[in-house]
Design a protein around this nucleic acid. Structure first.
Length: 218
DNA sequence: CTAACTGGCAGCTCGCTCAG
DNA sequence: CTGAGCGAGCTGCCAGTTAG
C-alpha cells in the first residue's frame, strides 16, 4: 500500500470514536491487550500486519498516544539500533542510513486516548516528507541531531565507566535503551566488543511533533 | 510541585529452522 | 511437506528519577 492511499482512508475515519469504528469484540482486545491500537489501525486501513522495515511501499506509519489537542503523551519509537550500530559509530552519511530511510516519508497519526477506549479516536493525520521543500529546515536539524548522536555514542563508549552507550539526545531525536529480558547485547565490529548490555532504539522527542505542527500551521 | 526524561517491561507477528 | 519453537523487529505502557 502507498502512503497516500492510507492517508486518504485515514481521513475518512479520523475523529470517529472507537465505539463507532470497531466491533465490541475488537474493542475488547484493545482493553485486554493495550498494545493493540496500532494493529487495529493497520487492519482498519486494510494493511497486512508485518515486521517488515517499512509499513508502506514508500513510507512509514507512526501512531502515538496524545490528548484531544494532539499533544503527544510519549516519545515516538522509530527503529532499533543494534543492526546499524557500526554505521553510527563511523558516522555513516545521514542520508545513507536505514534511519533516514525509515523517517524520510512518514504518516504520523495521533491517537487521542482520553477516557475509556470506547471514547478514543484517531486524529487528523500528518504527512511529513523530508524531500519536500517546506521540511528542509527540519531535515537539516535531523541531520545535525544524527551527527551529534553519533559523536555522543563514541564518547560514551570511550569515557563511561561501563564502556557502554547511554541515552544520547539531539534536538528532535534521541537514542535510548529499548529491550526486555532476556536482554540483547549490542556487539560492535568497530570496537571488537559489546558496546551495550541491552538493545537501544531511536525515538522522536515530543518537540518533533511540536515542530511539524508548527511547520504545517496546525 | 510538576512535567519531562530515562530505563525498562510486556505482547504481537513474521519468517526461519528443524524435527517428524 | 508441515507445524512447533524461537529470534528479530515491531508496538504500547509505565515507574522511578531528575530538571525546571
Amino acid at each position: 500500500m502507498k502512503l497516500h492511499e492510507a492517508e486518504r482512508k485515514l481521513n475518512e475515519i479520523a475523529n470517529i470514536k472507537f465505539k463507532d469504528l470497531f466491533t465490541a469484540e475488537e474493542l475488547q482486545t484493545i482493553i485486554v491487550n493495550k498494545g493493540k491500537t496500532g494493529q487495529l489501525l493497520e487492519l482498519a486501513l486494510g494493511m497486512k500486519l508485518s515486521n517488515k522495515n517499512r509499513d508502506f511501499e514508500d513510507g512509514e506509519l507512526k501512531t502515538n498516544k496524545c490528548d484531544e489537542t494532539g499533544k503527544p503523551a510519549e516519545t515516538i519509537f522509530i527503529t532499533q539500533v543494534s543492526n546499524m550500530i557500526d554505521d553510527l559509530l563511523q558516522n555513516k552519511p545521514f542520508e545513507e542510513t536505514s534511519l533516514f530511510e525509515k523517517i524520510d516519508n512518514i504518516l504520523y497519526v495521533p491517537v487521542c486516548k482520553v477516557g475509556e477506549p470506547t471514547e478514543w479516536s484517531f486524529l487528523e493525520s500528518v504527512h511529513v516528507n523530508l524531500n519536500e521543500e517546506r521540511f528542509f529546515c527540519l531535515r537539516e536539524q535531523l541531520h545535525k541531531d544524527y551527527d551529534t548522536i553519533c559523536q555522543l555514542l563514541n564518547h560514551h563508549i570511550e569515557t563511561s565507566k561501563d564502556g557502554f552507550i547511554h541515552t544520547s539526545n539531539g534536538k528532535f531525536i534521541q537514542i535510548r535503551s529499548k529491550d526486555s529480558k532476556p536482554y540483547h547485547p549490542i556487539y560492535s565490529n568497530v570496537y571488537g566488543r559489546e558496546v551495550s548490555n541491552k538493545n537501544h532504539a531511536f525515538y522522536f522527542k515530543k518537540q518533533f511533533v511540536g515542530e511539524i505542527r508548527r511547520i504545517l500551521g496546525l
